[in-house]
């Protein structure tokens, strides 16, 4: 079989996640269960091979915590907005499909940005162009060009936040230059 060998460092996040799921399901984080979970995680990762996720090689926890809090606040605000739209506007609501070119070309960041954007109510990824890393986003209640520009800025800001958390060093410095200029 022609398999690209994955280094343990690259596989570690997956293994840790599998152990957490295992222990959470047993509701037992004792040493024996952790060890057995790790064993099963390694066997599962070997048997059911997945193409490795190409990580940026860094993860900034200090940036991740405020990002998660802002994300939760946005979800709360937007959930109530969708509730209001459903009740008040209903069939008269206007939407738009807009193209948002992203800075990063890494699969992980494009996927993460698409996920975060899809989870915040009011926007949905309809199509992804991987070659140009462009997201086509359907936004609800986008009435005119100003709303579209606002949604586009939201998506770009979300991506900037994700780059600061787990982008590569080159992406972060490019971002700094962009913000500085």
């Amino acid at each position: 079989m022609n398999r690209k060998r994955i280094s343990l460092r690259q596989e570690l996040p997956l293994l840790v996640w599998l152990v957490i799921v295992w222990c959470a399901l047993w509701q037992d984080f004792g040493p024996g269960n952790l060890l057995f979970g790790a064993l099963i995680a390694i066997v599962v990762a070997r048997l059911f091979y997945l193409p490795p996720v190409e990580l940026g090689g860094r993860f900034n926890v200090l940036r991740a915590v405020p990002f998660a809090l802002v994300f939760l606040a946005k979800v709360v605000a937007a959930s109530f907005q969708v509730l209001y739209l459903a009740v008040a506007k209903g069939p008269r609501v206007l939407s738009a499909v807009i193209a948002v070119p992203l800075r990063s070309h890494s699969d992980l960041l494009v996927t993460a940005t698409g996920h975060v954007i899809s989870l915040i109510p009011g926007s949905l990824v309809v199509e992804v162009d991987r070659s140009t890393s462009t997201l086509y986003i359907h936004g609800v209640n986008v009435r005119d060009a100003a709303d579209a520009a606002k949604l586009r800025k939201d998506v770009r800001d979300t991506e900037a936040g994700l780059i600061r958390i787990m982008g590569t060093k080159e992406e972060v410095s490019a971002l700094k230059q962009e913000v500085g200029s």
Binding site: L94, S95, A96, V97, I98, V126, V142, D147, A148
Partner: peptide, 8 residues
Amino acid sequence: RLSSDELE
């Protein structure tokens, strides 16, 4: 019901 469609 779409105000713009950049995918089309």
